[in-house]
C-alpha cells in the first residue's frame, strides 16, 4: 500500500522535469504573450487577420505537425537550429527543446486570455491617463496592465496547465529521453507500453489530475483576490 505514496526515481524525474519545463515555458513566453495580446487588442494593421490565424494555428493543427515543424526549423540542421547551435544552444533532443515545444503549444491560450481582458478595459481610462501627462508606455504599465492582471493570471495558469499536458509536439521534436525530455505525459505513455506498467501509469495519472486541480484552485483564488482588490468601476454608485 505504501508504494502508492512513494514515487520511483523514474517518476520523480518525470514530475520534476514536467514542472521545470512548464514553468520555464510560461515564464519566457509571458512577456511576448502580453505584448502580442496588446497589439491584437489595440492595434489595427493590414494582415492582422493573417497574424491572428497564424497565432491560433497550434490550437487547431495536430500537435505532431507542430513538433515536426519545430524539428525542421530548430533541428541541428534546421534553418534556426544550426544558427542557435553556432552560439552554443541546442534544442533538439534537449530539455530546452521541450520548453520550446510546450511554449509554442500553450501560446495561443495565453494570448487569448490576456487579449480578452485588455479588450474589456475602457479606452476612456487610457485616454484620461494620457491627458494627465502619461506617455503611452506609462499608460500601459500603470493602467492597462494592472487592469488586465486577472486575464494575465488566468492566461498564465491556462498555459501552465497546457504545458504540463504537452505530449505530441514534445515527443516529435525532442523524443522521449528519461531525465532529459521525458515529461510526465511521456513517462505515462512509456508505462502503458511496458508490461506491469499499470500501477505506475495510474499513479502518474492521479498526479497529473492533482496538479491540474491545484492549478485551478490557485487560479480561482487569485482571481477572487484580484477582484476584491480592484473592484471594477462598472458598479457605478448611482
Amino acid at each position: 500500500m505504501t508504494e502508492w505514496f512513494q514515487l520511483s526515481p523514474f517518476e520523480w524525474s518525470a514530475l520534476r522535469l514536467s514542472l521545470i519545463v512548464a514553468i520555464w515555458a510560461v515564464t519566457i513566453s509571458l512577456p511576448f504573450g502580453i505584448a502580442l495580446a496588446w497589439v491584437m487588442a489595440r492595434k489595427q494593421f493590414p494582415g492582422k487577420f493573417l497574424l491572428d490565424g497564424l497565432l491560433h494555428l497550434p490550437l487547431v493543427v495536430p500537435p505532431v505537425v507542430v513538433g515536426y515543424c519545430l524539428l525542421v526549423l530548430f533541428g541541428r540542421n534546421g534553418a534556426l537550429g544550426s544558427w542557435l547551435e553556432s552560439i552554443g544552444i541546442t534544442l533538439a533532443f534537449d530539455w530546452k527543446g521541450a520548453v520550446l515545444a510546450a511554449a509554442v503549444m500553450a501560446f495561443p491560450l495565453m494570448v487569448r486570455a490576456i487579449r480578452l481582458s485588455i479588450e474589456s478595459i475602457d479606452l476612456g481610462l487610457e485616454a484620461a491617463a494620457r491627458t494627465l501627462g502619461a506617455k503611452p508606455l506609462r499608460v500601459f504599465f500603470t493602467i492597462t496592465l494592472p487592469l488586465a492582471l486577472p486575464g494575465v493570471l488566468s492566461g498564465f495558469i491556462l498555459a501552465f496547465a497546457r504545458c504540463l499536458g504537452e505530449f505530441g509536439a514534445t515527443i516529435t521534436f525532442v523524443s522521449n529521453i528519461p531525465g532529459e525530455t521525458q515529461t510526465l505525459p511521456l513517462a505515462l505513455y512509456t508505462y502503458t507500453q511496458i508490461p506491469d506498467g499499470e500501477t505506475g501509469a495510474l499513479k502518474l495519472c492521479l498526479i497529473a489530475i492533482a496538479i491540474a486541480i491545484l492549478a485551478l484552485i490557485a487560479s480561482e483564488f487569485c482571481a477572487r483576490w484580484l477582484q476584491t482588490r480592484t473592484q471594477s468601476e462598472n458598479r457605478r454608485a448611482d
Binding site: G124, T131, G133
Partner: peptide
C-alpha cells in the same frame, strides 16, 4: 502635440477614475 504634452486638464462626463 500628443495629449500628454498639452497640459490640459480634462474632466469627462463619466468621471473615469482608475478603479485599481
Amino acid at each position: 502635440l500628443p495629449p500628454e504634452k498639452r497640459r490640459i486638464g480634462y474632466v469627462f462626463q463619466d468621471a473615469r477614475l482608475f478603479p485599481h
